[in-house]
């Protein structure tokens, strides 16, 4: 199980393109996805482990594209999308399209979508992830966040 969680985390880094996804949530997020997509997730992780993971770190994405993504079935594509949505927004959709929101405040607060665009997670400007490297104080919104 532990091995699959680590592989799930690696897979998540590849599909999100984001090495900043929080390590602390990998088990919770594996469980969340696994609850609804168990067999599909097991298959995807096995494929990932055998066909992609052996590649060099800088080649993981291209390997994933050629070996899995470009050949993916609709079911696999949907699962990949749900994994992306989960890390980006802390919520994803069940197979019957029910929205499954963040289970904890921490999950919501650590979503990656807003930090990627240099914005605070809504309602949590004063509790932002450290890697955002921003201080959200009065008036920050008038500045170019890259300067």
């Amino acid at each position: 199980m532990k091995k699959n969680i680590d592989s799930f985390f690696k897979l998540s880094q590849v599909v999100t393109g984001d090495n900043g996804i929080p390590h602390s949530l990998k088990t919770e997020y594996f469980d969340r996805i696994n609850t609804f997509y168990e067999s599909e997730l097991t298959d995807l992780i096995e494929k990932f482990k055998s066909k992609v993971l052996p590649a060099k770190p800088e080649e993981l994405e291209s390997k994933f594209k050629s070996e899995i993504f470009d050949k993916a079935t609709q079911t696999e594509l949907n699962l990949i999308k749900q994994i992306i949505l989960l890390w980006y927004t802390a919520q994803f959709n069940s197979p019957n399209a029910q929205v499954l929101p963040a289970e904890t405040e921490q999950q919501y607060r650590l979503q990656r979508m807003y930090p990627l665009i240099k914005a605070p997670v809504k309602a949590y400007a004063n509790h932002c992830p450290k890697d955002l490297n921003q201080k959200f104080v009065y008036g920050y919104w008038s500045n170019n966040p890259n300067k």
């Binding site: 999100t16 393109g17 984001d18 999308k81 992306i84 949505l85 927004t89």
Partner: peptide, 25 residues
């Protein structure tokens, strides 16, 4: 919404990873 952008990029543009991140931003 941002969530819609993400979904559309995966479903319609068929992208993921760093390409997705760049297109989203």
């Amino acid at each position: 919404t941002p969530e819609t952008i993400l979904s559309n990029l995966v479903d319609e543009k068929k992208i993921f990873g760093s390409e997705l991140k760049k297109a989203f931003k």
